[in-house]
């Protein structure tokens, strides 16, 4: 019973992070029709930025802020410099480009920071909280994780639903040509979208890293889970991404707890395949199957 509860709590925390990462993928997919697999190494690079700052003796929070800020800049620069030239071209070129970036960032981090595991600090306890004599698997950092993701989502929701800039961003994503005719600077909105997505990705990276080990490949599996979560919720839906992330976090936590942590990625693959076969439009799609 206690294991069940703890597995669920662990899944919930992880699910929040996957939800954030899935959201980052969906934001970019909606606006540029690219699944930005390079989101994983982008987040990794910003985590290393934080690590450098912490190693230099500065506070965790300064490092945290610097990582998010570098995520913002990295996302904007990558969209503007590398992705922009292939937008509107063959889809496959944009995908190959993000994979090239994947390799570049990975290798760059390995050259600069080395390929070994390093421990990353957490600002709150990473031990389970005691409730009535038993320790439950909800840690201080876990609570922070959940709150951080919730706050981020709330802010994004406000931005998209309540502000003019959010309206412009949505219009650019849904129909760039009409948006241009209405005076929206679509290019800027895409840059901003990539920048925001990259911040959310960085946040996920920091949350995965907290109290744990990082190395250049530590986010690679997270991008897989983020992608599966996004497909689970329907690639176009930010709301779906969040729900998909939570469901996937729970499911994978149970696989890890009851079967074996080595098979978590395989479980994600199986879930992905099941979704694609049964409900390719995602769990919330109105029609069961989209055009194949």
């Amino acid at each position: 019973m206690q294991q069940l509860l703890n597995t669920a709590l662990g899944g919930l925390t992880l699910g929040m992070v996957y939800a954030a990462f899935a959201l980052a993928l969906v934001l970019i997919w909606r606006s540029t029709r690219v699944v930005n697999f390079a989101q994983a190494p982008m987040a990794m690079v910003t985590t290393f930025v934080a690590l450098v700052i912490v190693d230099a003796g500065h506070s965790y929070w300064l490092a945290f802020a610097a990582a998010l800020a570098s995520g913002l800049v990295l996302g904007a620069v990558i969209e503007r410099v590398v992705v922009r030239p292939v937008e509107g071209g063959p889809e496959i070129n944009a995908v190959i480009l993000t994979l090239g970036l994947f390799i570049v960032l990975h290798a760059l981090a390995a050259v600069i920071f080395g390929n070994r595991y390093r421990s990353f600090p957490a600002p709150f306890g990473v031990r389970g909280i005691e409730v009535g004599g038993t320790t439950i698997a909800l840690t201080g950092f876990g609570i922070f994780t959940i709150l951080a993701v919730l706050v981020t989502m709330g802010l994004l929701l406000l931005l998209f639903q309540r502000t003019d800039i959010g309206l412009r961003m949505r219009a650019s994503a849904f129909n760039p040509e009409v948006a241009r005719l209405l005076g929206v600077r679509v290019g800027r909105m895409l840059t901003l979208g990539w920048a925001l997505a990259s911040v959310v990705g960085s946040l996920a990276g920091l949350l995965i890293a907290g109290g744990s080990l990082v190395h250049p490949g530590y986010m690679d599996s997270v991008v897989v889970y983020g992608f599966v979560a996004a497909v689970l919720g329907g690639l176009d839906s930010p709301f779906g991404a969040v729900v998909g992330g939570l469901l996937l976090g729970l499911a994978l936590s149970f696989v890890s707890g009851y079967v074996g942590s080595q098979l978590v990625a395989l479980a994600a693959l199986v879930i992905l395949m099941l979704v694609l076969v049964l409900r390719p439009g995602g769990l919330f799609a109105q029609t069961a199957a989209r055009r194949v």
Partner: peptide, 27 residues
């Protein structure tokens, strides 16, 4: 200058009012 494109160009994912508000943002 306002251009209403062929095939109407309603942004179907937005609400009616959002479509209208969008129209005013460019001026």
């Amino acid at each position: 200058l306002a251009h209403v494109p062929e095939g109407r160009g309603v942004i179907t994912e937005l609400t009616v009012e959002e479509n209208l508000r969008l129209g005013a943002l460019g001026r």
